[in-house]
Design a protein around this nucleic acid. Structure first.
Lengths: 404, 404
DNA sequence: GCAGTTTGTTTAGTTGCGGCACAAACTCAG
DNA sequence: CTGAGTTTGTGCCGCAACTAAACAAACTGC
């Protein structure tokens, strides 16, 4: 009986079924009071009250009973629901080309503590991840808070279900590094409680922006961002990250945006990847690119500080046109209701929002789908917050089970 | 109290929660017995039995208690669950460039009855839809079966939430025709019971293939198909059609697949739309294209019957290469776990499957995501069956509520 | 000060479903 | 042919999550 292969689904989840959805509403700031919870969950006031009480008993939320805490227009004022400040936290880590960073993130995407981090990384994934996890463990020890799990953001695609980093183009890691396994091992050895998760940084940034930033309430959120080199994409559908069947979706860098463009390592030419990244911008503006790990800052500074320079402006407009063409292609395929841009793309949007929106509307097939709002990302450390979201997810799905 | 704006969610669905999932399992042929139902739903045998009894009482399924109906390996044989032959049906209608068609479709995608249909259509949507709905009503009257609703497949994008046909390129309908409203009105006036739905034909074909055809069990199913002109796409995610935020997703025809290609009405050049459709094939093969509404047949016949002709073969290989490039682009963005091709693309796949698979694998970024299975569609009248799926959906979601 | 409105809580009643025991229908070994 | 083993189907009990309804509380406005 125990050697038997159990079948697909096994949902023995008893207990309050609305507990998870309720927590998610508080987590994303969409349920300020028990009254809202009642209507939003479609349950009776009795049930909503019981659910809130249970979440409070779990130490996750706080019911602010102080009088006048939520003065409404009429009738009895409702008590305010808020995430508990001294509640559990998720451990978040991020590795990128110019270093790593660690943080503790509470419910609601609240940054509880951050470590200054390191500004250079080595070619050994195990060493880098080990160091950042040590930072995490130190933060956690100092805070004295309970931990629900850990999340790591890496600047490469993460293959499912193996959890290997596939294209560490920007950092000198070996292809196929078992980042998930390495991270999970480090987390366990550091004595950090809870499960460990790993994801791509742009994906996690998108998730964070959807829950707590410029992507709130969007049903079909598309994010596009540059690092120092290349372009990354992410899609959040109905509140869940869409990573495709093996984690490799939204590899948007190889849409053709310039038929006469420069050749790309993918075999094509004029790809979004090589036409709209910081290196492309610096080259187009006639500047000498600095070291690899500072291209993003160099190009962003150039765009913000020297936009009056005709060469800079012309280069920016060229990139905006190319980016718009790429976004239009994505709009035709994904039909999002919001687009969020990060990195240099965000700076390009800030430089001339009208031009970018016009190109997207012009080059997407339907005017209406091309008029999708295009916004800059708004969250600090969004990849870190997104990494924490991974760790929070089991709690959001089943608070009782995860905190048992 | 009644003028009040009710809030978002209102789930007062009482009753058996597993009723819908259970029906869906039988509908898609994944639950042949109550024992399978038990494990698949993750409930006890008692509950699964009660659920099956309730579905039988609703007249939707049949429990075959005849001895030996499901001889297993060991233990007590289980009774077979099947859709009831004389159960309710959905009314399905399809309009395309070379005519229209009507059918009745039972659970499990079973074609109960079909009308021969018409081979030409007029420029007035209301007239065409009225005629095909009349055919539907006649079929339904003759059958004497109960009707759960109606679905219509049209060869154009359908904008949400208005239900307007946006690009009737292939049929001479006015842009922005209110096809959903027209269809719903016709259905009501014809005395056909239940709600009426309208969708794009390629989307509905994909849905049908996912439920009953070559797309079974796929989590991320991508479909690409040609009509007479242009290319359509569809994506089924976790069993649900992904139509984007306003119904305009998967407009895949304007991926660039040939930088030096012919200009496209979208403003670009070398788009999938103009490089891989039947007209492109006939032109490349040096044949004179016949009338618009027979391009698909003409090109398919040419490909199947004259593949030995060097000009035909060369043209086919060129189209396969372009199609492969387009599919690779989609693979990079969507990372599907299965691809299904229809129309001329299906014929191209049949002609040289190895070449197509090789191109996709070569031009997609990750070998592993490029090795996705590419299959021909297998279902007859898949758009019709898909249209019926729309009408069945409310029943699958909540059998008790929909058949109350 | 009282009516009106909205929120929170208590109580009782309903019901879906897990757990369990038992019956039923088959295979296989001897 | 018989009995042990295995899997499926069903009846019964009890838990607990939920709704419904009544009541209490806290505000506004006249």
């Amino acid at each position: 009986m125990n050697g038997k292969v159990t079948t697909t689904r096994t949902k023995l989840e008893r207990g309050r079924s609305a507990l998870g959805p309720a927590l998610e509403l508080v987590h994303t700031g969409r349920a300020p009071t028990r009254a809202v919870l009642t209507s939003e969950l479609g349950v009776t006031r009795a049930t909503a009250g019981a659910v809130a009480a249970e979440l409070e008993a779990l130490g996750l939320i706080r019911v602010d009973s102080s009088p006048g805490s939520a003065a409404g227009s009429q009738g009895r004022p409702s008590h305010r629901l808020a995430v508990r400040e001294s509640g559990p936290v998720a451990v978040a880590a991020q590795v990128h080309a110019d270093g790593f960073r660690a943080a503790l993130v509470g419910l609601g995407g609240r940054l509880v503590a951050t470590a200054p981090g390191c500004t250079t990384i080595t070619a050994d994934p195990a060493q880098v991840i080990g160091e950042v996890v040590d930072d995490c463990a130190r933060l956690l020890r100092d805070s004295g808070l309970r931990c629900v799990g850990a999340g790591l953001a890496v600047p490469s695609a993460v293959a499912e279900p193996e959890g290997t980093a596939l294209n560490p183009l920007h950092i000198a890691w070996p292809a196929g590094a078992q980042v998930r396994e390495i991270f999970a091992t480090c987390v366990r050895e550091a004595g950090i409680e809870g499960p460990a998760f790993t994801g791509n940084d742009v994906n996690l940034a998108a998730l964070a922006e959807h829950r707590h930033g410029a992507g709130r309430e969007a049903q079909h959120l598309l994010c596009v961002a540059t690092g120092h080199r290349g372009v990354g994409g992410a899609l959040v559908l109905d509140g869940r990250l869409h990573t495709g069947s093996s984690g490799l979706a939204l590899e948007v860098g190889h849409l053709t945006v310039n038929p006469e463009g420069r050749p790309c390592h993918c075999g094509g030419r004029g790809c979004l990847d090589v036409e709209t990244d910081p290196l492309a911008f610096l080259t187009a503006a006639g500047r000498t690119p600095g070291p690899e790990e500072s291209l993003l800052k160099q190009s962003g500074d150039l765009l913000r500080n020297e936009y009056e320079d005709p060469a800079v402006r012309t280069a920016a407009e060229e990139l905006i046109d190319r980016l718009g063409l790429g976004l239009a292609g994505l709009v035709n395929i994904l039909n999002p209701d919001r687009i969020i841009l990060g990195g240099l793309h965000r700076a390009l949007l800030d430089a001339d929002p009208e031009r970018l929106r016009a190109v997207v509307a012009d080059r997407s097939l339907w005017g209406r789908s091309g008029s999708v709002p295009i916004l800059p990302c708004t969250l600090d450390h969004n990849s870190l917050v997104g990494a924490a979201e991974l760790a929070w997810q089991p709690v959001l799905d089943d608070p009782l089970g995860a905190l048992a």
